[in-house]
């Protein structure tokens, strides 16, 4: 299977024009996926020779940049809504959109033992600041608001909320201790299946709608072999292993399309 995909990739690259060798791919990536993408970039470079030029930001901001002509070729979003909007606006290729991972939400504190493994610290409310990503623009923030609603604590928790403009800033608020705890992406606090520091509650999947994260090929790059190779690589086993080690859920295996 792995061998097959690699062969496919090698063939795809070999068939592309000579200029595709050692190309650069301009990638816009949602902040929460920056770390895994950097790890994937190394493997991609080894497999294909292409370099990734990574620009990270909040999904909403990247959308606005792409809409206004930013020179990205591949968009790796933190949701599925935004790539769809780009497709509808004819700025991305419809048939290239796919889910590469499911984001998982974690309630995290940089202090050991502060967050219990059931998240009861939320209802006890013994903290001054709880950080979330801006619910208007970041999917992880929106999911956090949904959890407050489910627990019926929206009103009591709202005065304590501080919002980061994206999930990375939210992480910074918590890691510097300025907010005692906050909802971050599990991928930010976990590496190789283990919590890097502090304490966390991995929010059960049934408490929020799955954060399907989609990638899409932007129309400006529809003829770029290297950009297409990256999207194929993201679906491949090698990339998926990296993705899951960072604490993402994987999309269900669909039958490999025979070409």
């Amino acid at each position: 299977m792995k061998l097959f995909k690699q062969t496919l990739l090698a063939v795809a690259i070999a068939c592309s024009t000579a200029s595709a060798w050692a190309d650069e791919v301009q990638v816009a990536v949602a902040s929460n996926f920056t770390k895994p993408l950097e790890a994937i970039a190394e493997k991609f470079k080894a497999a294909s020779g292409h370099d990734l030029k990574i620009s990270a930001g909040a999904t909403g901001k990247l959308y606005a940049q792409i809409e206004n002509g930013a020179p990205f070729e591949v968009f790796i979003s933190a949701d599925s809504k935004t790539p769809k909007k780009l497709v509808e606006a004819k700025m991305a290729e419809a048939d290239s959109q796919f889910t590469y991972a499911f984001g998982k939400l974690a309630l995290w504190s940089s202090t050991e033992g502060y967050v219990d493994d059931k998240g009861e610290v939320l209802t006890k409310g013994d903290f001054k600041h709880l950080a979330i990503a801006n619910p208007k623009t970041a999917p992880y923030g929106e999911a956090a608001m949904g959890i407050f609603g489910k627990l019926g604590i929206t009103d009591t928790i709202t005065p304590k909320l501080v919002t980061g403009e994206n999930i990375t800033q939210t992480y910074d608020f918590v890691s510097t201790g300025n907010a005692e705890l906050g909802f971050v992406a599990l991928s930010q606090v976990q590496k190789e299946g283990k919590l890097k520091s502090g304490s966390a509650w991995v929010v059960p999947q049934d408490m929020y709608t799955p954060l399907s994260q989609d990638a899409v090929l932007l129309s400006s790059a529809k003829d770029s072999a290297s950009a297409k190779a990256l999207l194929e690589f993201l679906k491949g086993e090698e990339a998926q292993t990296v993705i899951s080690s960072y604490g993402y859920g994987l999309p269900e295996k669909t039958a490999t399309k025979e070409k």
Binding site: H129, N134, V162, T163, G164, E165, Q169, F173
Partner: peptide
């Protein structure tokens, strides 16, 4: 402000 305000 963005970095230390928390947008409250």
């Amino acid at each position: 402000v963005l970095m230390i305000g928390g947008n409250i």
